[in-house]
């Protein structure tokens, strides 16, 4: 059994990060929410509607999924074709489709790439096209299934910036599934999943304070926390609570000034 006794709610407009190491069942969770896999038991409710084989396609219309591998989700022969794919499936009329494709490409900063073919794009650009394809269908929920895990740091930051922007503009609900702790820091709430069970839930600050537990679960801790631990090992007194990079810099400046 991949998942067992998992139960949680996602609020409208929330950014929920689901964190876990490889094989912890988090990708299965994403596929269950979108109805791509059928659960052996339990219930999934989306906007007060129970997910069943009958209303699957209807509920899926409101959910956009971005997967991990940029190459394996690029269906179209060109950028514009790929963005239009979801719209074609929904039978959107052609003029409306053209408008929405152009709009979505502007929103992810890929306008001017319409006729380019996937082989001529970088990984980050392909993921932005995938995101544009999701945005074009005007979903209410966006699920990122390790969408940044195959990108370089720059591509990853760029994608996260675009998602944050889109989330604010369209009041999207974002569920990001990741093992990247920096990505989880963007979230308003973090779920930690281990061996198919939810082991921890809370705001990123609260979660990141439990450094020892995170490391034990095979997860990483944020850079500022790593710095804090190293200082602690050198015998320097550091604050207990979680500090992000800016707070950490402030604290360092202050403690140096005191001496």
């Amino acid at each position: 059994m991949v998942l067992d006794g998992v139960s949680f709610d996602v609020q409208e407009g929330e950014w929920l990060a689901i964190v876990g190491h490889n094989g912890s069942g988090k990708s299965t969770l994403a596929k269950l929410i979108d109805g791509l896999l059928e659960a052996a038991g339990g219930e999934i409710t989306i906007e007060d509607q129970l997910l069943t084989p009958d209303n699957l396609w209807e509920l899926r219309d409101d959910i956009g999924l971005v997967f991990q591998n940029p190459d394996n989700q690029f269906v179209g022969a060109t950028v514009a074709d790929d963005v239009a794919f979801g719209l074609e499936n929904r039978g959107v009329e052609r003029n409306e489709m053209k408008r929405r494709v152009a709009e979505a490409l502007v929103q992810v900063g890929m306008d001017g790439f319409e006729e380019r073919e996937p082989t001529s794009l970088s990984g980050g650009q392909k993921q932005r096209v995938a995101l544009a394809g999701v945005i074009a269908i005007r979903p209410r929920v966006v699920i990122l299934d390790e969408a940044t895990s195959m990108l370089d740091p720059e591509g990853r930051r760029e994608i996260l910036r675009v998602i944050r922007e889109l989330k604010d503009r369209f009041q999207l609900t974002v569920i990001s599934i990741t093992h990247d702790i920096e990505e989880a820091a963007h979230a308003s709430r973090v779920l930690i999943i281990n061996d198919g069970r939810i082991v921890e839930e809370g705001q990123p600050e609260a979660i990141f304070e439990k450094e020892a537990e995170l490391l034990e679960l095979g997860l990483d801790i944020p850079y500022a926390s790593r710095l804090k631990r190293s200082l602690n090992q050198l015998g320097i007194q550091v604050p207990e609570q979680y500090l992000n990079e800016e707070e950490m810099a402030n604290w360092l400046c202050q403690s140096l000034l005191k001496k």
């Binding site: 596929k31 997967f67 989700q73 794919f85 074609e88 053209k98 494709v101």
Partner: peptide
């Protein structure tokens, strides 16, 4: 992977689709 991605993007059976090109 592609089949899953196509499913997630609402591809059913090729009928009742509109065409971009």
């Amino acid at each position: 992977d592609i089949a899953t991605a196509m499913d997630a993007r609402g591809y059913r059976d090729g009928k009742n689709r509109t065409k971009y090109r």
